[in-house]
Amino acid sequence: MRDQSKIGKYFRRAREKTGMPWLRFHDLRHSAASAMINAGVDLYTVGAVLGHKSAASTKRYSHLATDSLRAALERIGQKNPHQNKMRAA
C-alpha cells in the first residue's frame, strides 16, 4: 500500500507541473489502450495488457480499431507522387 501512496503523490506532482491538474491516473489506461489499438495491436492483446478479465471490457476500444481500418482504407487509391504508374494485369 505504501508504494501506491508514493505513486499517487508523484503522479499528482507531475500532473500539476505539466499543467494538467484534471488528469486522472485512470486516463493513462485509456490513452495506452488507444495508442495500442491505433498501432495495430489486436483487442485480445490490449485486454491482456490492461488486465481485463473479459473481452467485453476491451470491446469499448473496438471503435478505435474501426477508425484505424477506415483510415487505412481511405489511403488506398490515393495517388502517390513517387509511385510509378502500373498497369493492372
Rank of each mutant, 00 (worst) to 15 (best):
K85S: 12
R2M: 06
S54I: 02
L64H: 02
S5E: 13
L50G: 08
R60Y: 09
K6S: 09
S68D: 04
H63M: 05
H52L: 05
A55T: 12
T18M: 15
A88M: 11
L43A: 04
K6E: 10
L28F: 10
W22V: 02
R75G: 11
F25E: 00
R13M: 10
A89C: 05
A39M: 03
A33M: 03
K59M: 14
H26Q: 10
L69C: 02
A39Q: 07
L73D: 08
R15C: 06
D42V: 00
A65K: 03
G47P: 03
R24D: 07
A55F: 03
D67H: 09
R12G: 13
W22M: 07
N84Y: 08
S68C: 06
L43Y: 01
P21M: 05
E74I: 00
M20L: 14
V41E: 08
W22T: 11
A39W: 00
R87Q: 12
G51A: 03
K6D: 09
Y10Q: 05
R2N: 12
R60E: 07
T18F: 14
A39N: 09
S5W: 07
R24G: 01
L64F: 05
F25M: 11
G77Q: 00
Y44V: 09
A35D: 11
S62Q: 14
R29H: 12
M1I: 07
R24Q: 09
L23W: 06
Y10I: 02
I76L: 12
T58L: 01
V46T: 02
R87S: 15
A71D: 15
D27S: 04
D27P: 05
L28Y: 07
Y10R: 09
H82W: 12
R70Q: 14
G47L: 02
A39P: 00
R60F: 09
S31A: 12
